[in-house]
Write a protein that binds this DNA or RNA. Structure first.
Length: 189
DNA sequence: CCTACGATCCCCT
DNA sequence: GGGGATCGTAGGC
């Protein structure tokens, strides 16, 4: 049997964990695929939900590493994070749909595989993630996190949709993936 | 290709 | 009472 990534993997700096999550296969009730896009939100980050201190909504970010932090976005969507060191988390923005395509298509109401999990809200809808998963341990059902077999080529750039701390290149993606929420702007040099 | 905007909930000040 | 770590659609170029 394959073992899911556990607490030890996540009990580190979010800046180490985030790029290492690319290529890791995320399954929820057997549906999902390899993660292709994430963003890091650290413990002193004005863009992080934990920045203003502990509240009802963000309580999971102040708890143990290796748990899911799920929150409501714009009143409509859900977004999934993996908690790392306390007050930090990785936002899961996109994965490549490989397993359970029919279930994902049913929940999303679209057929195009490129529109199933390409964005944090779409990904949660496709995998059936909502409020009840907040605080759940990532190494227990319905979650499975399967270690990657090879290290993908990684690109990085500014995070999406934030207004604070926009200067940090803390968005990570698999180079050349067709399943990103949007292209990563090529880095300046 | 791009930009603009409405939907709709709930947390937080 | 304000404002999102978004998405889908509409319309312009």
């Amino acid at each position: 049997m394959t073992r899911s990534l556990g607490r030890d993997f996540f009990a580190r700096s979010v800046h180490e964990v985030a790029p290492e999550l690319l290529g890791v296969t995320l399954l929820v009730d057997g549906a999902g695929g390899p993660i292709v896009e994430v963003e890091a939100y650290d413990h002193e980050d004005p863009a992080s939900h934990s920045f203003g201190g502990r509240t009802e909504r963000n309580a999971t970010m102040f708890g143990s590493p290796g748990h899911a932090y799920v929150y409501r976005s714009y009143g409509i969507h859900w977004c999934l994070n993996f908690v790392c060191e306390p007050r930090s988390a990785v936002l899961i923005r996109a994965l490549e749909p490989r397993v359970g395509l029919d279930a994902m298509r049913d929940r999303r109401g679209v057929d195009d595989p490129r529109l199933l999990c390409s964005g944090p809200g779409r990904l949660c809808q496709a995998l059936g993630i909502a409020r009840q998963h907040d605080g759940f341990p990532l190494d227990e059902a319905p979650f499975e996190l399967l270690p990657r077999e090879t290290e993908p080529e990684i690109v990085r750039g500014p995070r999406v949709g934030i207004t604070q701390a926009t200067e940090h290149p803390w968005r990570y993606a698999v180079a050349g993936s067709r399943f990103l929420s949007r292209p990563v702007r090529p880095a300046r040099r």
